[in-house]
Amino acid sequence: MIKGSQSIQFDKSPFLISSGSIVGKKEGEGPLGNLFDVVGEDDLFGEKTWEAAESTMQKEACLLALGKAHVTPEEVRYIYGGDLLRQGIATSMGMEALQIPMFGLYGACSTSGEALALSSMAVAAGYGDLMLAVTSSHFGSAEKEFRFPLGYATQRPLSAHWTVTGSGAFLVGTRKSHVRISGVTVGKIVDYGLKDSQNMGACMAPAACDTIIQNLEDFERKESDYDRIITGDLGYVGQSILFDLIRKKGKDIKPNHMDCGMVIFDQKKQDTHAGGSGCGCAATTLASYILPKLEKGEWKRILFVPTGALMSTVSFNEGESVPGIAHGIVLEHC
């Protein structure tokens, strides 16, 4: 059922059947370390390049999700996958082995939301019983793509994020489980003109605010109707900006807000400045930390809002601002 201007409420909500999470060494040493399915011994995962390592993580995350649900790749109708790299190469290389029809996505760090929205829409529409949503990011490949070689001597600003090395995969379908995707709010591009790509939290906070407010409006809900409103990777800077922006709209999400980028690392001990980021940040936190709480019923209904800073190194050099996007996924215990 179409809700408001940007949302869908599913008449027959698809289930989030199972998930898989795989992360690198640093993430494994973080606060969520023992919750992930697999923690790599090093960040190369037996490969020679960061890109190949990232694609291996995606494949493994998918296999983990499939394995938990005792599903073979042949039974999966479509994959919705994406990563941070140019032309989505980590997804293309990783998914080849599975031989499942695929849609490649790009939504920067919001890709997990995009993939979950599209896969649940496809299931709800009856175009398949089982869909996979998968995203990944890798510190090494992302630094190389967007910033500097790893060994380059530079001082990171305090507003900079630390890209999570990790991949999360989700099996969405009609088979019963304890979590369902009851609705989605697809986000718009929101750009407040900020050009500082080292302050992604501030670039994404307006988009997160827009999507959260729109979700509450479309579903005619209050902030407190959600046990948690969970953003992807706004980090410490982005979170405080989000609170201010939401307050200006006459709402307050302070008591029930959580940010994946802030929980995945220990900011002080792990020296991650503003927090974690990347497609893998929201995806692995959802798989390892959020879903178990929903499955147990500790949280009844949450709004999962992965946020993306849609920058490109070319547009950045050409003086363009960093557009933001955020997608809202309503997850409920059942």
Binding site: P157, N199, V237, D244
Partner: peptide
């Protein structure tokens, strides 16, 4: 944002 962002 400048006011909100911590610096070294």
């Amino acid at each position: 944002v400048k006011e909100k962002t911590p610096v070294h």
